[in-house]
Amino acid sequence: MMVKKRSFYEQSRPYLIAFIVLVIVIWAFSGIQFSGIKASAGQILGSIFSGLFHPDWSYVYSGHGEDLVSALIETLAIAFLGTIISSFIAVPFAFWAARTSKKFSSRSTFGKFLLTVIRVFPELVLAIMFIKAVGPGAFAGVLAMGVHSIGMMGKLFSEAIENIDRGPEEAIISAGGNRFDALSWATLPTVLPEFINFTLYRFEIAVRSASILGIVGAGGVGAPLIFALSTRSWSRVGIILIGIVVMVTAIDWLSGTIRKQLLK
């Protein structure tokens, strides 16, 4: 059996790609100005670790709404509402952006472009914009989280729609059904588990993102964290960091468990 001889380009392509990546890495590092480590870095790091080992337990719950539990609940509420609202809004965007045939579709191209534009703006930038529009607080955080999640989940949903088996749809239409029947009895039942899976995964990410929105005034646990850092209240910083770690870990475990059950 004759083995086709590889061309010079095919042989050198891996080395060419590696060289290009190396050039990009060197260029990226050359643009960073390393000013060194501050002399107080070790002291601050030691103070943070001291706060982690000696947390301010009195801040956990006071009953006045100005405690760690209240801040964590607000953070979860921001992440949950932002994810749920965006998951519903992302569905029509996903069908708009999904390319359901091999032919070029200007509809899906524009839909994908729009979802990309929405994803361009990070949550913090959107939070600052919405704070100017609706004022500081959790509502601005929900809007920022929701708008950013539309772009992300719309992309994931559209890819799930593109990858489904078209056989059931064609069978329903061949039996006399219309497009709505195919959507109701074939497409949606097929993609719904994937939609729920992506929504839960996005909620995990949203919980982490919502934890820092308070830094710019968009509600959540980020506000007391930045205030504690500014006032060098390391015990307060320690208990807030512990609360964030516990919350994120619990949400990751719960979401992962639910997603495993869905994929069975």
Results as ranks from 00 to 15, higher is better:
50 S>H: 13
52 L>K: 10
23 V>Y: 04
67 D>L: 09
18 A>M: 11
39 A>C: 08
48 I>P: 03
42 G>H: 05
58 S>D: 13
51 G>Q: 04
57 W>R: 10
65 G>H: 12
28 A>L: 12
72 L>D: 08
72 L>V: 08
49 F>D: 09
32 I>Q: 05
66 E>A: 05
49 F>Q: 00
61 Y>H: 00
70 S>A: 15
31 G>E: 02
63 G>H: 01
21 V>H: 07
30 S>W: 11
56 D>V: 06
65 G>P: 02
78 I>R: 11
27 W>F: 14
65 G>L: 02
40 S>F: 04
33 Q>L: 01
38 K>P: 09
45 L>S: 10
52 L>M: 08
50 S>M: 10
77 A>I: 14
21 V>Y: 03
29 F>W: 07
68 L>A: 09
56 D>F: 01
60 V>D: 00
31 G>I: 07
66 E>C: 10
69 V>G: 06
57 W>A: 08
62 S>V: 04
34 F>M: 06
28 A>E: 11
45 L>W: 12
18 A>W: 10
18 A>L: 13
68 L>S: 01
44 I>E: 13
60 V>L: 06
78 I>V: 12
43 Q>N: 14
71 A>M: 07
42 G>F: 13
23 V>C: 10
34 F>I: 14
35 S>N: 15
60 V>P: 03
78 I>H: 06
59 Y>P: 09
28 A>F: 14
38 K>F: 05
45 L>D: 07
28 A>T: 11
30 S>D: 04
69 V>N: 00
74 E>G: 03
78 I>D: 00
74 E>P: 11
36 G>Y: 03
30 S>G: 06
50 S>E: 08
70 S>V: 03
55 P>I: 03
44 I>G: 03
42 G>E: 10
74 E>C: 03
34 F>P: 01
74 E>F: 02
63 G>E: 08
70 S>G: 07
17 I>L: 15
54 H>A: 13
20 I>Y: 09
60 V>E: 00
67 D>I: 07
28 A>W: 12
47 S>Y: 00
22 L>H: 01
40 S>C: 00
55 P>G: 05
77 A>Q: 13
